[in-house]
Amino acid sequence: MDRIPILKMGNLLLVSIQVDLHDQLALDLQDDLSERIVATGARGVLIDISALEIVDSFIGRMLSTIASLSRLLDAETVVVGMRPAVAITLVELGLYMPGVRTALTLEHGLTLLGAEVRVSRSDEDEIDDDDGDGEPDMLAGYAAAQAGRGGAEPAATGAAGRGDGGRTGDR
């Protein structure tokens, strides 16, 4: 059964929506996320929607629900990577997503959450940092993958090259 992966990064949870969301997948994501927030004590949730070509009221409502749910569990939600055409369409559609904060890129999203949530590495979930950029490599790798499809600044890393072979920008 399909599931949208939820990655843990410090005290944040990272969700990248790469597939067309349908009812069951969206409900499963809500369930999985709330369980992971409680299990990990995460203080923030980053949802990457840069792969989504459209956001209709169904997906918008799901993002709102996740934000409300997370807030009840003491975690902030930031949606990152919305495409410009999607933003223009949402405004015209008249869809407002109450409680959903947005940031242009994953980096900005991290900064936004970082203001309230300290991204720390605890000993038990240590992540190697062999590229020496002071960030966990998992993050660098993710940022590179983002950069690979034009989602983030290439500067996000020492890990350039790792995103190669990924998708090319399709915006």
Binding site: E53, I54, V55, D56, S57, F58, R83, P84, A85, V86, I88, T89, E92, L93
Partner: peptide, 17 residues
């Protein structure tokens, strides 16, 4: 245009639902 494509696809998605 890309924006108009996105609007049309979004409208169709709402109507299909």
């Amino acid at each position: 245009s890309l924006v108009d494509q996105t609007k049309m696809v979004t409208a169709a998605s709402e109507l299909a639902r």
